[in-house]
Design a protein around this nucleic acid. Structure first.
Length: 547
RNA sequence: GGCCUUGUGGUCAAGCGGUUAAGACGGCGCCCUCUCACGGCGCAAUCCCGGGUUCGAUUCCCGGCAAGGUCACCA
């Protein structure tokens, strides 16, 4: 068969010599050891925690080695495309401090390995497909969807391995006349790889994350060019990662199963293979079982969700890093003030097994991270969040920034010897401080009886002097307790609880709930003084009236 | 079902032939204390199972089992 003529019929026209592309995309001039990694999302615009997980690993590996991180858009599937997706992905990643050196819509001088949209690279793919046809390593396949699924059913029934391979690869042995007849009839076709692999051959392969694994040779005649002339993922991966000079492919472990295909593709194309690291997926508990995060089932795990909740970007990053490299947590404990970038990230330290996403742990880290902020930093963090996601009432919290700073200083414990860790996310923090900005709509229940509550509030009001300092104020509170049959000293109360109606703690609680609505708050005296005499007194009187 | 990967407390995990089997989150208790938070102290809880190899296996080998992934003209 005249393969050259066939190739010309299938892909007419002049394509550049393959060496042209080698020269157009020369090996990168980088230091020894510098890694070139990439993120290659399809443009659905949806990006979740699992994507961030892999993104951080790629970013760290590239940048700590003095290498390059680039963004490639895998838009070979028309059905998946969503408008504005690339911008959305870039924004979401930027929030978590993932910066690309080059790639799709990335400004900068180093864009010579583009284009970075696969749809704009079809000439390159076709040139190589054409060469493969000439070399007899690729062929047209006219099988219809129905024929393929019939084949599949037959294989399942016979308990054979499913797929297009060996004797089942019917179009592989089509005669010249049959091929041209099909072509003349205008039958649609795809181009498949003519695989030379033998699945009996098992080979050892070094994965940068998993270590030494065994892979079997591929024998599937996979589609490399779809009927619309666009390559499949597998083929585009081989071409692009070669010509973009990727050195290390860190990707999700769902790709492990197709690794044999990729290896054969790199070999048949005569490309040097990149190194691979297959990252375990982030799992989610789903009833009795666990499964990997999915975009359809877990919209609450989208990066956008974390921004809406007001998670502190650095906290999410720290959490991801603790999951990614098991020695990170210890390092961070020892070097709390060192830049995150100075941690030596290592692919081989990445976890081999699926990790369950733990919101408790994230919240704990968030509280720690937020507790390191100054009140100015906290203010701008909350303000930025409120401007984008807050209610109108919450936006108004920031009209008087000095007042807000006092509130934050109290809730963060910045002035005092003991830091507080009340804040986990921006939205949660806004809820915590809400009583400083509006009267509480609900009050937690009081432990004391309504009669005692009224009596306590009355005596408190009668002796209250806004000029009292904290010590004097508390001494008076003790007097109020004693006058009403409550123990002034906790020790006395604990020694003999039956001798009193309660303790000064109960008295403080009455006041606290009256003013804030909550039984648990930071220092009450300070709250009273932030609110001001008038407002505080008004709240206490209101509580007394409803008693 | 075939193939691949992975199995240490509830979760994340250190460990790499001999350890009282780290640490963190969560839980529980105590202390501090006007509440909460912070902080301190303490407790409970783990090597998937069965065979080997070995003086000795969490660790090495084999076999099970379980979980996850994957078997498209989707990536």
């Amino acid at each position: 068969m005249d393969l050259k003529a066939l190739a010309e019929r299938l892909l007419p026209g002049d394509y550049p010599a393959l060496s042209y592309y080698e020269e157009l995309y020369p090996p990168r001039d980088l230091e020894k050891g510098a890694e070139v990694t990439r993120l290659a999302p399809s443009p659905t615009g949806f990006i979740h925690l699992g994507n961030l997980f892999v993104a951080i690993a790629n970013e760290r590996i590239a940048h700590q080695s003095g290498g390059v991180l680039y963004l490639r858009i895998e838009d070979t599937d028309e059905k998946r495309r969503v408008e504005g997706a690339v911008e959305a992905v870039k924004n979401a990643l930027r929030y978590f401090d993932i910066r690309f050196d080059e790639g799709a819509e990335i400004e900068g001088a180093e864009n010579k390995y583009g284009p970075y949209y696969q749809r704009q690279r079809t000439d390159i793919y076709r040139a190589f497909v054409k060469d493969l046809i000439v070399r007899g390593r690729a062929y047209p396949c006219f099988c219809t969807e129905e024929e393929l699924s019939a084949l599949r059913e037959k294989q399942v029934a016979e308990k054979k391995i499913t797929g297009y391979y060996g004797e089942y690869a019917r179009c592989r042995t089509l005669s010249e006349e049959e091929i041209y007849r099909n072509l003349d009839e205008g039958k649609p076709y795809v181009i498949r790889l003519k695989s030379m692999g033998d699945p009996e051959h098992k080979l050892s392969f070094h994965d940068e994350i998993k270590g030494d694994i065994t892979v079997t040779e591929n024998d599937q005649d996979v589609v490399i060019l779809k009927s619309d002339g666009i390559p499949t993922y597998h083929f585009a991966h081989a071409i692009d990662d070669h010509f973009m000079r990727t050195t290390l492919v860190i990707r999700g472990e769902e790709w492990l199963a197709s690794l044999p295909i990729h290896l054969e593709l790199f070999d048949v194309l005569g490309f040097r293979r990149p190194r691979y690291g297959h990252n375990c997926s982030l799992m989610k508990q789903d009833g009795e079982t666990r499964r990997k995060l999915s975009k359809r089932k877990d919209p609450e795990l989208s990066l956008e969700f974390y921004r809406q909740e007001g998670y502190f970007a650095r906290a999410v990053k720290v959490y991801m890093l603790t999951l990614l490299n098991s020695n990170f947590e210890e390092w961070y404990r020892k070097n709390p003030d060192a830049p995150l970038e100075s941690f030596r990230f290592s692919a081989s330290k990445m976890s081999k097994s699926g990790t369950l996403f733990d919101l408790d742990k994230l919240n704990d880290i968030s509280a720690d991270e937020l507790a390191r902020l100054s009140e100015e930093e906290m203010l701008s963090f909350l303000k930025e969040w409120a401007e984008e996601y807050g209610t109108d009432a919450q936006k108004a919290y920031f009209k008087d920034e000095d007042y807000m700073k006092k509130v934050l200083a109290l809730c963060m414990g910045t002035g005092s010897k003991k830091r507080r860790k009340d804040f986990k996310t921006a939205s949660q923090a806004m809820g915590v401080i809400s009583y400083f900005f509006s009267r509480p709509e609900t009050h937690e229940s009081y432990r004391v009886s309504p009669e005692d509550k009224r009596a306590l509030l009355d005596s408190y009001l009668s002796s209250y002097d806004h000029g009292d300092d904290a010590q004097v104020w508390f001494a008076k509170l003790k007097e109020v307790a004693a006058e009403n049959g409550f123990a002034a000293e906790m020790k006395a109360y604990k020694a003999d609880p039956s001798a009193y109606k309660g303790s000064v703690a109960d008295v403080a609680e009455v006041l606290r709930i009256a003013v804030t609505g909550h039984a648990n708050t930071p220092d009450l005296w300070t709250i009273l003084h932030i609110l001001g005499e008038e407002e505080a007194a008004a709240r206490i009187r209101a509580a007394r009236e409803e008693a």
